[in-house]
Design a protein around this nucleic acid. Structure first.
Lengths: 389, 389
DNA sequence: ATGAAAGCGCTAACAT
DNA sequence: ATGTTAGCGCTTTCAT
């Protein structure tokens, strides 16, 4: 068991420069050995003996046909006569031949890898999206190369550059500003782009997003319906488009009932932004003054969890004393008690939809689509009418 | 805003067959236009005018050199004379030329994409690993193709097949049985494999895993130290190697103090397995009988959360009446109150270590390494000495 | 120091 | 129905 030293051991190679040195892997028994039997050209069989054929020419020799025919067996089976096809297929199976995607791609066939640049894969929200994307792409026989930008323009640009070289079939991009420079490069190479979580409609590209205005509105509506009239709005983070939208939605909900948004909503922020950190000051701010808030509207479930903990520590009961609403409906939201009322985004479906669009881009008559998903309010135990206080 | 119909709209393409139809993306202004100025061969400039050069031959013409030289500027700059190099570099920059990885790979250069097959990317545990891998690989200029197997052998095999064709540089694999068939194919092609979360030592491959025996032991030790003598062991799931190891560790901890594991640990299972679902029966079982359990040892934090909720619903106080220990240290564990005592696995580092090994495989004198990470016990408020009852 | 040319494995157009 | 062949864009000897 290795405890200390692991880091040193592993990261010794961090600055390793990529050389073309061949690597050596241990030789284990091959999965299938091309037997000398049942092969058209024994001489060819000997030539490629033991080691499986690395290219279609070898396969062709073994089957006693030409490369073109092998290619056809693989790509246009209907063009090949039954017996011939079977002969080739047998060799294919026997030898466990795998075709070379790089070579295929070089001839101009559409690539089957799709690039995906997200803000942070370790965030459950994005992980779900990635999973949905992956599943959707699998149905089209595609694989996803995923990279996190960490909201760092330089990191993003680096990833985009590599994806550009890799010759991906399409790019699924989620960046704060949807970096126009990055995008232009793909457009120039005629590589389709699917913008993720981009609220701004743009008809020149495919787009998949959650309707955050609606989400913000339904969360606020729920609280207003319950009778809340002073609501703490946590950490507005006005630089994140989707959060801006939610604010817009929330305020619209108030206005729709003839309420003055400025009167209803009290902006308080957790510091450091988002979850973690002491929610104390924020709670203090929200609950002090002549008109204390009776509810908290949080930017996400993690923040809501922080607030819940802070409230509990102060001896306040949820939802009796205060109501709390989250956003995202992460797995733990349902498991808390009281369960957390929150707004669910169909995260997985966002990813799947993006995959659908990627595949659709290949269709002759494709027109760009802007898909918007409606979030849904999940009412649980953390919200109730404000107390009589 | 599109609500209903989204699914139909998107998944219309699920059965889309991959055709080689070219796709059309809108033309936006290119990022850089190769100006007619400052170019060696004006005729060549006109030839590739407007559209950026798609290959090194074009670049070579524009710079008035040969392909070989352009290649050298890119890969062995030290071989090219200063002025020549600058001339080429200028064209490179001006035109925004991107090289074609497929073509490079065809010549035998080591690929810079790495395959990664995990059980489920939407699981925060794996998402963290993927993120660590991604970061580690980025330092070596590599990208990760990630795929989820969902513990389904067929899905896994499909992913492996595609990765095989894609010509990845190495494979990071986490499967329940580390599918020998799948592995053999990569070994046969001399593609290095890094086994993830594989407790079984095997010196013929690189391996990265968390020391689950130690994890199970330290969790049990903690409870035993506090004085607990009847501990509920949730959902043993004996088919998952890492859980088997944890059980081994826990029981060893009891034995080390001369206690009979069979006396100390009470196996109870959540149904359906893992988190979600009513923890009632399990809690009932654990707390009933002549010698009720005073603590719960959970297979992961989600399960612990379920148990915590169930206990709370029964009016039992944690840690006064019962102690609870989780596993994984997910983000919310620290935010609960009381905070959840749990065993932290350095998930991110596992991924990073795997990346380190991938890069190390390229070194001339590489020897396979089996890395084991020590988990750490994070003591929070959910554990205390058993009550006087 | 630079150029010329031979492939890498595949597809698709053309020839038979 | 099958065979032949010209590239795709790059790296890498080998000449110069």
């Amino acid at each position: 068991v290795c405890r200390t030293g692991v880091r040193a051991l592993v990261f010794r190679n961090e600055s390793l420069e990529i050389s073309n040195v061949p690597h050596f892997a241990p030789r284990l028994p091959a999965v299938a050995t091309p037997g000398g039997v049942d092969v058209a050209d024994p001489a060819a069989a000997r030539a490629v003996s033991r080691s499986r054929p690395t290219n279609m020419t070898d396969v062709a020799r073994l089957a006693g046909v030409s490369v073109g025919t092998v290619s056809n067996v693989l790509n246009n089976p209907q063009l090949v006569a039954g017996p011939t096809r079977e002969r080739v297929e047998r060799v294919l199976r026997r030898t466990g031949f795998v075709r070379n995607a790089a070579a295929r791609q070089l001839t101009g066939v559409m690539s089957s890898t799709v690039g995906c640049v997200l803000l942070d894969l370790s965030n459950p929200y994005f992980a779900e999206i990635a999973r949905g994307l992956e599943d959707g792409l699998a149905e089209g026989g595609c694989l996803a190369i995923v990279a996190s930008s960490d909201v760092d323009a330089e990191r993003e640009q680096r990833a985009l550059q590599m994806l550009l070289e890799a010759g991906i079939r399409a790019l699924v991009l989620n960046s704060l500003d949807n970096s126009p420079i990055g995008i232009a490069q793909f457009v120039a190479k005629d590589i389709p782009i699917i913008l993720l979580d981009d609220a701004r409609r743009r008809s020149d590209l495919c787009t998949v997003a959650s309707d955050c205005v609606a989400g913000g509105r339904m969360a606020a509506d729920h609280l207003l319906d319950l009778g809340h009239r002073r609501i703490a709005l946590l950490g507005p983070h006005l630089d994140i488009p989707s959060l801006v939208d939610r604010n817009v939605g929330s305020r619209a909900a108030a206005q729709a009932r003839g309420l003055e948004p400025g009167q209803v909503f009290v902006d308080v922020s957790l510091q450091p932004p988002d979850h973690h950190g002491d929610p104390g000051p924020a709670i203090e701010r929200a609950l002090s003054g002549p008109e204390p808030c009776t509810a908290f509207l949080c930017p996400n479930d993690m923040a809501a969890l922080t607030v819940l903990t802070g409230l509990q520590r102060r001896g306040l009961s949820v939802p009796r004393d205060v109501s709390v609403v989250g956003y995202d409906d992460l797995a733990f939201a349902a498991l808390l008690s009281p369960g957390l009322t929150t707004v669910r985004q169909s995260t997985y479906d966002l990813g799947r939809a993006a995959a659908g669009l990627v595949l659709a881009e290949a269709e002759r008559d494709h027109v760009h689509q802007q898909l918007t998903f409606a979030p849904t309010l999940v009412v649980r135990g953390s919200t109730a009418p404000p107390g009589p206080s």
